[in-house]
Design a binder for these strands. Structure first.
Lengths: 211, 211, 211, 211
DNA sequence: CATGAATGAGTTTTCATTCAT
DNA sequence: GATGAATGAAAACTCATTCAT
């Protein structure tokens, strides 16, 4: 949302020297802090530069805009949150759907809790910046595809109700979990953590019609 | 002295003449249109005034700020959306939980669809304006209380699983429905309308463990 | 979001480069000219920026407000006006009270005359801006303390009437001189300069009961 | 200082009905209160109308502007403050200069104290509105003429030093008294009331060289 | 006379982005 | 690459004054 002269936006090239890479990393880390405390709209490039202890102009040697650095910050987060579980135990086909769902919910729950401040800002930016919304929807689709595949698989095995559309169900259940955690951690509806997770598990399992 | 600097935001008094009331109503209606087409952030007071065919300053003799008129627009919408169903058929205790849930989902679905443009903006403002967020959370709590009471009632009758916490379930299921419709109508995941509603019904019913 | 609304007045940091320092100095000097010709209330930031040949926004990268730059302009003036006389002859204890008072009055008179235009604005701002009033009252107290000490000293030596309270007398006599010069130079009661100074001297000396 | 469309300012005619006269009086009285609490610049026509319990527009049936009603408020005050003392004792030529000055100072002191809030605003407006400044300077000259005549008279009688110019002395001493009381009652230099008056008396008497 | 709604020019302040060093 | 000063378009908000009833 440029106010001054129309933007030309030289997209900076990736850093080549080691010093450049370090500065860039400092900026990303500073940006995360600033976004978490100020929100996206109120975050100032000046604050980010200050927090990173670099000059104002240095920001623009590394990122073309506030949106761009936010994308970077969010991407790092997404990578952490939706990383295939290294052990991938909860994906182990040997385990029952119930076990796998509970495992999956717990991991998401813990990730969400740890990153609640930033998740709140992500909600905000999603409502404001179309490019970022697209990025997030992409992640959503990837996750939905994964869940959808699992649901279909279970349907084929007769473990899950066939009345539901796997793709829609994947979206809906992810929405339920995500949104409930938002309410829990961001809005601050004060409910017992374990109770929330337990109820989410039951609802998820029931929704899918798992025996 | 300076004019552009807000000293203490004058809250205008409600109009006493019919003429004043009409102008105010024109402003609210114009504001809704502008918000729907421009979004909250990009909506300009100037545009609202222009759309209502009044002078710039007239806006400020009726509302103290963009936030304030948005509250009004949203309140009107909420009133429409969460109005007790006049016939209240879906609340009829004679009907089965399944029938009542399906009815309730359908009504919300239709309301949401009809007001999708504004609902999208509401999501946006909720992320931006704490006062508005509080307003919306109040609505959420009222609805959750209503649903929660029904769930509890059904649990007592043995119609619904007692493994779930009614209050959390109320929030979670409302989140699921609401968010899925957002994805459907706002984000534009292109899915068949009937399929969405049908799947939401099944998920809802399953989640509650209704036989 | 909105740009026109002051969120938290950024207090800019002092310039670190010579270029910045020069621009800042140009602004202060331009501001003085604008204040002198337009008065404080009618002075526009735009005029100051134009007079300093910088862009509008440049003003705000050096000062947070019109009040702030005025403080700077006035501080420079006060420093000049109330600087200890370099030669400090009029403070020379060897001189008689009469000589010292006459000397002191003359210096103040000449300073006032030279800076009459700005002094008029200072009177104006003092009535309008509480922060500035505090600044000026601070100066008044410092000067009163100095005069008061001298009066007390003379009282101890039997040179000045002991019927008067030194502190109140210091304020009152300073008021008399200051205000009379305002009437003379600002309001423009057209009286002969030498006559004014001479009468002020006599009044001052008589008021203190100096033999 | 019109902001909107250039002023045409129909100067309202004096009220002819009794109702009109009452409304007008209510406005003047309300204006005084508002000016005292808000100052001139921050006083809003709206506040004055509200305090007088009349409609906004009614103000303009009686006064063409904020300046105009302030003139009225201030004129009432001046009339009270500089009214010839009904008993005119302090003017009694039989009394000594010292007695007359002390009496005069005391009366001014008490008037000032009683009206300190409004006096402060008068200082403010004097710095802002040239018309009002002229009004006040007129009052000053009238008073100075009166004092000047007395001083001259005393000089002829050999009671007062002839080294001083009566006209300048009249202004200067009035300034001293006035300004000291401003500092005392408005700025709030916390000094004992009796001490101030006593010292002012001594300074005044000494300044004039009264034996 | 009283009412109160309508008017709109004028000013401040913000801050993303550019650019000379 | 880093620095930090300069830029200026954009928008909100105020309130004295007018005017139709």
């Amino acid at each position: 949302m440029p106010r001054g002269r129309p933007a030309r936006k030289n997209t900076p090239t990736p850093p080549v020297t080691e010093r450049g890479a370090k500065t860039r990393a400092r900026l990303v880390s500073a940006a995360r802090e600033v976004f978490e405390t100020e929100g996206f709209i109120n975050a100032r490039i000046a604050s980010i530069a200050r927090a990173a202890k670099v000059a104002y102009g240095t920001f623009y040697s590394h990122f073309p805009s506030k949106e761009a650095i936010f994308m970077e910050v969010a991407s790092e987060l997404f990578e952490e949150m939706f990383r295939e579980d290294p052990a991938a135990e909860h994906q182990d086909p040997a385990k029952s759907p119930r076990e796998r769902l509970e495992r999956s919910n717990r991991i998401y729950y813990e990730n969400y809790k740890r990153n609640a401040a930033l998740m709140a800002i992500i909600e905000q930016v999603e409502q404001i910046d179309p490019d970022f919304r697209e990025l997030r929807n992409g992640h959503r689709r990837i996750n939905a595809a994964r869940s959808s595949a699992a649901i279909e698989h279970w349907q084929e095995q007769g473990l899950v109700s066939t009345k539901i559309d796997p793709w829609i169900a994947a979206f809906a259940i992810a929405s339920m979990v995500d949104r409930t955690l938002t309410l829990q951690f961001v809005v601050g509806e004060d409910i017992d953590d374990n109770e929330v997770l337990h109820t989410l598990n039951e609802l998820t399992i029931g929704a899918l019609g798992i025996a």
